Amino acid sequence: MDALKSAGRALIRSPSLAKQSWGGGGRHRKLPENWTDTRETLLEGMLFSLKYLGMTLVEQPKGEELSAAAIKRIVATAKASGKKLQKVTLKVSPRGIILTDNLTNQLIENVSIYRISYCTADKMHDKVFAYIAQSQHNQSLECHAFLCTKRKMAQAVTLTVAQAFKVAFEFWQVSKEEKEKRDKASQEGGDVLGARQDCTPPLKSLVATGNLLDLEETAKAPLSTVSANTTNMDEVPRPQALSGSSVVWELDDGLDEAFSRLAQSRTNPQVLDTGLTAQDMHYAQCLSPVDWDKPDSSGTEQDDLFSF
């Protein structure tokens, strides 16, 4: 819950932080000083300027060897085509990944977070970031790969997607708890209302004896509580940590079903599988986004697919 609360507080303090972009060759504004600060901008989305290598189908939802083989196929196909790589912007948030063309600003792909089953910074092609997700059109699994400016960037994108998945799962947990509370309150309110109706004398007997209905007592009954809980029953509950912020979080049926399955089948359902080692994760978390744009010590960066 700490990640969720800190993310909400950060967004309320400075929503404009989320509009910064990394990996864009110096076009961005001043960047936060450390990885923790940038992680807090996830709610509205972190932007990464990358190059799209392509996509291939895979048979399993996750796995280092599986993704490595898929990336190898994608890279080989991209090299064989001889075409310049498409420059894209990857927007990562707890909602998922939005992929747009840098030149036309046209939407290429919009992947809900619950469809993503794996992401990684490839070991062999260490400047490549990739994720595996279920197609929104059918049940097939797709591996999408992107060329980053350097290994640090690939690791940073991988960690960002993993963190977005974690925050999304926490949102789901909060929403589920809130819905259970509202359902319980609604049920209790309905029981109270039913009890009051059972003990209320029939209207005919009131008229016969000349008694008047006590409207004041009726007004004191917990009807307002019942209506408050039943009027918006169809509205999706939102985490309290975000009250007053500009973010509107809505959970669709697909996300609810997917996270429910994860909660039942996995020990740590909030953790998205990645190909990063503990050492890689520690190294990337210690980086400032400013470091992502620094040239690798191995030599001059080449803006070309064939540089790796």
Results as ranks from 00 to 15, higher is better:
2 D>G: 04
3 A>N: 07
3 A>R: 12
3 A>S: 13
4 L>T: 11
4 L>E: 04
5 K>W: 09
5 K>F: 01
5 K>I: 13
9 R>G: 13
10 A>L: 08
13 R>L: 15
13 R>S: 08
14 S>V: 07
14 S>W: 01
19 K>M: 13
20 Q>N: 15
22 W>A: 01
22 W>I: 06
23 G>P: 05
23 G>N: 02
25 G>R: 06
26 G>A: 15
30 K>Y: 09
31 L>C: 10
31 L>R: 12
32 P>G: 14
32 P>K: 14
34 N>G: 09
34 N>S: 10
36 T>S: 13
38 T>D: 06
43 L>K: 15
45 G>C: 03
45 G>N: 08
45 G>K: 01
47 L>W: 09
48 F>C: 01
48 F>H: 04
49 S>K: 02
49 S>M: 13
49 S>R: 01
50 L>A: 08
50 L>R: 00
52 Y>V: 06
54 G>N: 01
56 T>N: 01
56 T>K: 01
56 T>E: 14
57 L>A: 14
57 L>F: 12
62 K>I: 03
63 G>H: 01
69 A>F: 09
70 A>R: 01
71 I>F: 00
73 R>T: 12
73 R>W: 05
73 R>Q: 15
75 V>I: 04
76 A>Y: 08
77 T>A: 10
77 T>E: 12
77 T>R: 09
80 A>G: 14
80 A>K: 06
81 S>C: 12
82 G>Y: 04
84 K>V: 05
84 K>L: 08
87 K>A: 09
89 T>I: 09
92 V>Y: 01
93 S>R: 10
95 R>E: 02
95 R>N: 00
96 G>C: 07
97 I>N: 00
98 I>L: 10
99 L>R: 13
99 L>K: 07
100 T>D: 05
101 D>W: 06
104 T>S: 13
105 N>K: 02
105 N>T: 05
106 Q>H: 14
107 L>N: 01
109 E>Q: 05
110 N>S: 07
110 N>C: 05
114 Y>V: 03
115 R>I: 01
116 I>D: 00
117 S>Q: 06
118 Y>K: 15
118 Y>L: 03
121 A>G: 15
121 A>I: 02
123 K>V: 07
123 K>Y: 14
123 K>L: 15
124 M>H: 05
124 M>P: 00
125 H>W: 00
127 K>M: 00
128 V>I: 01
130 A>V: 00
131 Y>P: 00
131 Y>F: 04
132 I>L: 03
134 Q>C: 15
135 S>L: 02
136 Q>G: 11
139 Q>S: 14
140 S>R: 11
140 S>L: 13
142 E>W: 08
145 A>K: 00
145 A>C: 00
145 A>I: 01
146 F>I: 00
146 F>E: 00
146 F>Q: 00
146 F>G: 00
149 T>V: 11
151 R>H: 12
159 L>W: 09
160 T>Q: 06
161 V>E: 00
161 V>L: 10
162 A>F: 04
165 F>A: 02
166 K>R: 12
166 K>S: 09
167 V>W: 13
168 A>I: 12
168 A>E: 04
170 E>Q: 03
171 F>G: 07
172 W>T: 03
172 W>N: 02
172 W>G: 03
172 W>F: 02
173 Q>T: 13
173 Q>A: 15
174 V>W: 00
174 V>C: 04
175 S>N: 04
176 K>Q: 15
176 K>W: 04
176 K>L: 05
177 E>G: 13
180 E>R: 15
181 K>Y: 14
181 K>E: 13
182 R>H: 13
183 D>L: 15
186 S>N: 03
186 S>L: 02
187 Q>S: 02
187 Q>P: 09
191 D>L: 06
191 D>H: 12
193 L>E: 13
193 L>P: 01
194 G>H: 11
196 R>P: 12
197 Q>H: 04
197 Q>M: 07
202 P>A: 07
202 P>K: 10
202 P>M: 09
204 K>W: 05
205 S>W: 03
206 L>C: 06
207 V>A: 15
207 V>W: 01
208 A>Q: 07
209 T>C: 05
209 T>G: 08
211 N>D: 07
212 L>G: 15
215 L>G: 08
215 L>M: 08
215 L>Y: 12
217 E>C: 03
218 T>V: 05
219 A>V: 13
221 A>K: 05
221 A>N: 12
222 P>K: 11
222 P>T: 14
223 L>M: 11
227 S>K: 06
227 S>C: 11
228 A>Q: 02
232 N>F: 05
234 D>E: 10
235 E>T: 09
236 V>Y: 06
236 V>A: 14
238 R>L: 13
241 A>D: 15
242 L>K: 13
243 S>W: 07
245 S>I: 11
245 S>T: 09
247 V>P: 14
247 V>W: 09
247 V>D: 15
248 V>Y: 04
248 V>T: 11
250 E>W: 04
251 L>K: 08
251 L>R: 09
252 D>M: 05
252 D>A: 07
253 D>N: 12
255 L>Y: 04
256 D>R: 03
257 E>R: 04
258 A>H: 08
259 F>D: 02
259 F>Y: 03
260 S>A: 04
261 R>S: 10
263 A>L: 11
264 Q>G: 05
264 Q>V: 01
265 S>W: 02
265 S>E: 13
266 R>M: 03
266 R>E: 06
267 T>D: 04
269 P>Y: 02
271 V>A: 12
272 L>K: 06
273 D>A: 11
276 L>Q: 13
277 T>N: 02
277 T>D: 07
279 Q>L: 03
281 M>W: 08
283 Y>F: 06
284 A>V: 03
285 Q>M: 09
286 C>P: 11
287 L>P: 06
287 L>A: 05
288 S>W: 08
289 P>Q: 10
291 D>W: 11
292 W>S: 14
295 P>L: 14
295 P>W: 08
299 G>N: 05
300 T>P: 10
301 E>F: 06
302 Q>A: 08
302 Q>I: 10
303 D>I: 06
306 F>I: 01
307 S>F: 15
307 S>D: 07
